[in-house]
Computed example of a mutant assay.
Amino acid sequence: MKDSIHKYFQIGTIQWMSHPPADYEVLESIKTICCDEYFDVLEVTQMKDEAVRENAKKMLEQAHMRVCYGAQPRLLGTGLNPNDINEENRLKAEKTLLEAVDEAEYLGAKGIAFLAGKWEEKTKEEAYVQLKKTTKRVCDYAAEKGMAVELEVFDYDMDKAALIGPAPYAAKFAADMRCMCNNFGLIVDLSHFPTTYESSKFVIQTLRPYITHFHIGNAVVKKGCEAYGDQHPRFGYPESANDTEQLLEFFKVLKEEGFLSKEQPYVLSFEVKPWKGEDGDLVLAGTKRVINRAWALLDD
């Protein structure tokens, strides 16, 4: 494409993935990313320290960054399950998501994202009803603040084993939610397509009416290989599924399906992380190179 990718997408990265909290101080990470003009968006998550949260808000405002809020760590890090068939436990998950809406609003985000919880075959239908209940409550609360709610589609049997996807099941859930809530949408992630055994074309065409946000990244789906599962290694990682060729195909499908919008650009964020001693900034730089090459190869 002759036009810059920034004409059609707001490019972001996921802070806690690019700079894992065990190795990077959150405010230093935010400043580093905010000072990089390649990024229009920063996706952040829970900040328990009030002073950290206040300083992060100031930096994001000064850098003129669009803010997105991921509540996934609030669930994954605690084991809370928004589709838990135990009602008391479901309400605990609902509570942290409602708190996430408040924190997101404070930080300047216009919504939150989360994921479904684990499931079992014998209680799958019950879990589906529970997830609808949680999502409806969170959507209603977010709507009072003019905010949106997005569910990220994950694998169902490989790593996260979330209730939602695969894509057809995600489409069913999204259709049910849209009947009740017009502020609900889906996040699709290129790195999850190999983990659900689906292609870019299939996922995007299946979920076309409901997609509101994109992530891109990589995965290793060969059993026994390093970084197997939903680990988001860098593009081109050994034995991994995605590199420039797969990202180009992803861009082709987005173009064909009408997702290139200069008037209302979608968020397109990196979801890659350094693996075992790798440098997060080098991984970010490599991701930009893959994106720039794939975009350059996309036909006008």
Results as ranks from 00 to 15, higher is better:
115 L>F: 10
188 V>I: 15
250 F>G: 10
246 Q>F: 02
20 P>M: 01
58 K>D: 07
118 K>P: 03
284 L>V: 15
124 K>Y: 10
274 P>Y: 03
130 Q>P: 00
10 Q>Y: 06
71 A>Q: 12
197 Y>P: 00
177 M>P: 07
125 E>S: 05
214 F>N: 09
159 D>N: 04
82 P>T: 01
212 T>M: 05
215 H>A: 02
86 N>A: 09
18 S>T: 08
246 Q>I: 11
254 L>K: 03
248 L>M: 15
95 K>H: 15
4 S>P: 02
38 Y>W: 14
285 A>P: 00
259 F>H: 05
14 I>P: 02
68 C>L: 13
259 F>I: 09
114 F>R: 06
14 I>N: 13
88 E>F: 14
237 Y>C: 07
37 E>N: 12
155 D>W: 05
66 R>M: 06
49 D>A: 08
232 H>Q: 11
281 D>G: 03
83 N>C: 10
35 C>F: 04
224 G>Q: 04
280 G>F: 01
93 A>C: 07
66 R>H: 11
169 Y>V: 09
28 E>L: 06
121 E>I: 04
199 S>L: 09
256 E>L: 07
166 P>S: 12
119 W>K: 06
202 F>C: 13
196 T>S: 11
197 Y>A: 05
14 I>C: 14
181 C>I: 04
218 N>C: 13
34 C>K: 01
160 K>H: 03
19 H>Q: 13
159 D>L: 04
261 S>E: 03
113 A>L: 15
131 L>S: 05
81 N>Y: 12
42 L>K: 07
15 Q>M: 08
245 E>H: 09
97 L>F: 10
18 S>V: 03
26 V>I: 14
241 A>K: 05
10 Q>L: 11
147 M>V: 14
271 E>R: 09
83 N>D: 01
278 E>W: 08
145 K>W: 08
52 V>Q: 08
36 D>T: 09
172 K>I: 02
240 S>C: 06
206 T>A: 12
29 S>M: 02
51 A>E: 14
43 E>S: 12
230 D>P: 02
192 H>L: 05
89 N>P: 04
172 K>E: 06
163 L>Q: 01
94 E>I: 04
115 L>H: 11
143 A>Q: 14
120 E>S: 03
81 N>T: 06
60 L>P: 10
30 I>W: 00
13 T>G: 06
18 S>W: 01
34 C>N: 02
